[in-house]
Design a protein around this nucleic acid. Structure first.
Length: 174
DNA sequence: CTAAATACTATTG
DNA sequence: CAATAGTATTTAG
């Protein structure tokens, strides 16, 4: 199943002000948090361990459970800082089945020295794996981190045909 | 406002 | 391998 992703950006302040009430629910393999006008502001795969914690990040809102029916076109409202928005957009250009280092990403957005900050931004993307942050690895060949756990990252890469065993720090298949 | 924390990297022993 | 300095951004206090 391939989805068309439509991204919109906003700041935390505006988001909190505009959307005091949010909806959440499950559809297909996804667990989502939606704005009243149907935009996805957070998403995770139900198969991720602790995927329910997705909802816990929105305790400042009134949360209402709802029956969700996702369409082919996923309209997302991404809440973040300017750097995070820039990084998330850059992530969309990473083709399926390939990987990129945090450093290369930083170079790409003209902030080569800000690697560490870029890595943090990658990690705070709220709709992984729609935004393919699992395709970002360390430049020394280690796999790097993943919000939902390294095993989830490995599984995603494997599905896309990336050879994990060329990465360091991965348990070798016996 | 300041301090602490980072899904990083290059360097050194 | 471990420790460490450099680095920029976000978050907690």
């Amino acid at each position: 199943m391939t989805y068309h992703i439509d991204l919109h950006f906003t700041s935390k302040e505006i988001f909190l002000k505009t959307y005091p009430t949010l909806f959440y629910g499950e559809d297909k393999e996804w667990l989502v948090v939606l704005t009243p006008d149907g935009q996805i502001c957070a998403l995770a795969m139900r198969s991720f361990p602790e995927s329910q914690t997705l909802i816990k990040k929105y305790q400042k809102h009134t949360l209402v459970e709802k029956k969700i029916a996702l369409k082919d076109k996923l309209t997302c409202l991404l809440v973040g800082t300017p750097l995070q928005h820039q990084v998330w957009e850059a992530l969309l250009n990473i083709p399926v089945g390939t990987t990129v280092s945090y450093q290369k990403l930083a170079d790409q957005i003209q902030r080569p020295k800000a690697v560490r900050a870029v890595a943090n931004a990658v990690g705070s993307n709220p709709i992984s794996p729609l935004i393919p942050c699992h395709r970002v690895i360390r430049s020394d060949g280690h796999i790097g981190g993943y919000y939902w756990g390294i095993p989830a990252k490995i599984a995603l890469l494997k599905e896309e045909g990336v050879s994990i065993y060329s990465l360091k720090g991965i348990p070798q298949k016996r």
